[in-house]
Each structure stands twice: as structure tokens, then as C-alpha cells.
Design a protein around this nucleic acid. Structure first.
Lengths: 253, 253
DNA sequence: TAGTCATTTCTGGTATACAATATTCCAGTT
DNA sequence: AACTGGAATATTGTATACCAGAAATGACTA
């Protein structure tokens, strides 16, 4: 069942003494183009679809939103196959749901599901905080504080609406700083879901003030490498949001 | 996170007052044909492939293991399309990697990646422990203890080799008991990866003894609803494994 | 004999055709 | 007018054909 073919295709035709084989000289090319044009149609369709869905403000209405594979394929100018593969990916990430011979529908998270998302986020980010106190270099933590003071106060002054986005970015930065790819990838997905709900989340001035204080405490704990405290502050901050949603987010469901 | 919701296609045309609409009387028909869940080829291929990969003991050798779409499709007696879709799913879960015009290869986690997996697991399970102390009913926690005493001591006596599997099941039970689907789904994937590595993990008698003591402490903390302590014990238990891997698992890489 | 280069083969990516089934709508009947 | 039955339609699931590019192969040359 599994073509167990060891050592089958491994020659590489590269000689040891540095003499060029085919290319002029790879070592002279200064590591350019680390990013190749990677995108297959499937990837492009995935990105385009995801952006479209995120930008859709799906919680505004309750009406079912159906995505038509063929129409999308036409609009993108490609065939159904890559669109389908992108859809499958989005389905496994919880953004759409495919009903066998009915159609593909955009998923709205229920209140309970949102709370579960936030709770999982709390778990991941508090571990990230722990890792940061143990491993991160001072410079990175400092950059967090810089970002905080620049961004946060500015955005708050600008518009309360935009605070949620800045807020998400702050937490995303913490997770990224953990250096743990598994945590990062898992959280990335959660945050994307959060961004979709963000628009409907009413942010009161009080909550923003408290949130900023929380963030400041978190940064301080990280700077002082207070593992337990950082972990706890991060966790409680997120769980506080979960409780807020539990109480006031009746617009879900 | 997973597939279609079976409750989606359930209209059933039942009215409240018991009067028959179309059927002679729905209540008289004894709930026949509750489920007829013929899964798609894609699903079947996914399950078959995943089982095959997990059963493969890929860490025994270092040789690249390539999976041939066409051959697999032939072996399954289906076309490439559902096999490809299953592969895409497995790729997004980190079990295989598709190299554009080279082939699809089974992924071996590096030591660093394994440690990241375990760390993420620690995050998820410690949150699960917290949730259990807050929400679970006593009966469930009691069942955990029952399972522990039955299983664990028995398996230990039977074979040290099998301990790892029982160990994983214990932790999986904790996560499931949290009732948080997001945590559960994320962890399910992690545990599957852990099962693949399990075979190569040398378990010494000492470690098993300590592990069992840890488990017992965890159960006690859960029973007493000691949130902080349960959380901490679970986290440290998992992180202890991560450290063990860091020190002794040079067979990875 | 060793190396080079063209050709052939093999791979996943994509497009398209076909199949199966749920839904919709309309005609015919009572 | 209401209901039944079925055909037309719409939609995903699956199979197949084709494409581009990389690797393997083998002939040819120095």
C-alpha cells in the first residue's frame, strides 16, 4: 500500500569539490529568492477565499451564505479542482461546511464555540508567555513594549472600533514570540476566527482601559521573567474576555 | 474542525400536535433507519491512509517514504481525486508533505518539533484540567480514577512497551473530559503524532513509576477541584516528558 | 572511462467529463 | 384548490485526460 522505496531517487549529482555541475555557481548567488513563486492555483484560491470569507462580515446577518464552487472557479478563471481543494482546507479549519449535495456554507460560530475558541487561545498564549520568560531575548520583549505604547495608545485615541484589531495583534505577537511553531500555527487559525467576530463585539471604553492595563502588566511580568505571573496574567486576561462574551454576546446564536 | 454535521440534514417534517402530515403517524414508526452514514471515498481514503501511516513505524528507518497517488488509488480501487483530497488533509495535519514535482513524502518530526508538540500538548491539557475542576461532574472524574487503576497497573505489569499507549490514553481522556471541542480536536492531532513516536521512545522502569505517581496526583487534584494545582501538575508532567525527550531522544533527527 | 546532453519516464497539478442525488417546479388527477 | 408524481435542474462527488516540470536513462563524445 505504501511504495516503500528507500534510497530510490537520491543522487543529486552534486560533487564534493565545489565544481559546478549545471548551475554557474550556487554559492555566489547571495541567497536571493528565498521565497519562490510558490503559489499553485490551489494556494491562490485558498488565500483568496479565506480573505473573502474573513472580509465578509458574516455575523451581520443570519442568512445562510453559500459558496458556489463553479461560480468561484469561473470568477477566478480556473477549474473547480483547485477551488475544491482550497475549500477542503477551509472546511478542516472550520470556516466552511460542506453539505453533501446541498452546497458549501460559511460557518457561523455559536456563542459556545466562540467561548471554546477563546479558552483554547488562553491555553496557547499562557504557554507562550511561559516560554517567553524562559527563552526570549530582552530585545524582543522590549520590542513588544514599544509596539504596545506606539500602537495601542494611538489606536485607542483614533477609534474604539479599531482597538479589537490592535488587541488581537498584540496577543498574536506574544504567541509568535514563543518561537513554537505548533503553538503559532494553532493560534493563527483561532485568531482568524476572532477577527471575523471582532466587528460584532461591542467594545466599551471601560473594557479597553482595563485591557490596556492588563497588557501593561503582562509586559512587565515578561520583562521581569516572572514565569508563573506572566502565565497567569495572560490566561486570566483571555478568560476574562471569554466571560465577557458569555455574558454579553447574545447576538451570537 | 472535522466533517459534515449529520444533524444538518434532519428536517423530518414533524409537527407539534402529533397530527400526521404526510406519514400516517411518525410516532408509530419505530425510529427506523437512524443512520446510514456511507462516508465518501475521500473519507475512507483519509482513514485508510492515516491508519497506514500511523502503523508504519516510520522512525525505524531514515529512508524517505514516498506515497504514490496513482498506486494508492489503484490499490484502493478508486480514482486519484479522492486520494488527493485525503492527502491534502493529511498534509495540513502535518503527516505528509507534498513536494511539487517530486512526490508526497511521509513526514518525520525532528526532535525540536516533537518537543514543540509536547509543549503545545502541555498547554492544552493543563487548560483542560482547569476546566475539569470547574465544570466536570464527580462521576466523570471518578471514572478517570477507575480507568487509571484498572488500566495502568495492569498494562505496566504486562509490558513496559505498552505503557506509552495507555499513558497517551490517560491524557487523551483528560482532554476529552474538558468538553471543549476546540481543545479536543487540536489535541487529537497531537496525540496521533505522539503515537507514531511512541515506539521509539525508550521507557525505563523509573520513568514509568514516576509517571504513575504523577497521574495519581493529578487525579487527586481533580477530585478535590484544586484548579491551580491540577493545572500545574498536568503542565509539569507534560513538560517533564519534553525535557526527557530533549535529553535522551537523540534518535530523532 | 568519465562526463555531457538529449530524450524518455514519472510526478503532482489542473481541466474537464461523468455520476449520483437532493431540490424545485409543473402537469395531471382527484 | 390541493395533492401526488415525476421530470428537469442544480450541486457535489468521482473518474479520466492532459500538462509542465523534474528526475532518470542512455547514447554519444572527448
Amino acid at each position: 500500500m505504501t511504495k516503500f522505496d528507500p534510497s530510490a531517487r537520491r543522487s543529486r549529482a552534486r560533487n564534493r569539490n565545489g565544481a559546478p555541475t549545471v548551475q554557474p555557481d550556487a554559492t555566489l548567488q547571495p541567497a536571493l529568492a528565498p521565497i519562490e513563486a510558490t503559489s499553485s492555483f490551489k494556494q491562490k484560491a485558498y488565500v483568496a477565499l479565506k480573505n473573502a470569507i474573513v472580509a465578509m462580515d458574516i455575523y451581520r446577518s443570519r442568512a445562510d451564505i453559500r459558496l458556489d464552487e463553479r461560480k468561484l472557479a469561473q470568477d477566478f478563471g480556473i477549474s473547480r479542482t483547485p477551488v475544491r481543494e482550497a475549500m477542503a482546507q477551509l472546511e478542516s479549519e472550520g470556516f466552511v461546511r460542506s453539505v453533501p449535495r446541498r452546497g458549501i456554507y460559511v460557518v457561523r460560530k455559536t456563542k459556545r464555540e466562540v467561548i471554546e475558541l477563546i479558552t483554547a487561545w488562553a491555553a496557547l498564549e499562557s504557554m507562550a508567555a511561559r516560554l517567553i520568560t524562559e527563552n526570549a531575548i530582552d530585545a524582543d520583549i522590549a520590542s513588544l513594549r514599544r509596539m504596545f505604547t506606539t500602537f495601542e495608545s494611538g489606536a485607542l485615541r483614533a477609534h474604539l472600533d479599531e482597538y479589537s484589531e490592535v488587541n488581537i495583534e498584540f496577543h498574536q505577537s506574544i504567541i509568535r514570540m514563543s518561537g513554537n511553531r505548533v503553538l503559532i500555527d494553532m493560534a493563527e487559525n483561532l485568531f482568524t476566527h476572532m477577527r471575523m467576530i471582532r466587528r460584532k463585539t461591542i467594545v466599551e471604553k471601560d473594557r479597553v482601559d482595563r485591557s490596556i492595563r492588563d497588557h501593561m502588566s503582562i509586559i512587565e511580568a515578561l520583562e521581569k521573567r516572572e514565569t508563573a505571573r506572566a502565565e497567569q496574567l495572560v490566561r486570566d486576561h483571555a478568560l476574562g474576555l471569554a466571560e465577557h462574551v458569555e455574558r454579553y454576546a447574545d447576538y451570537l446564536d
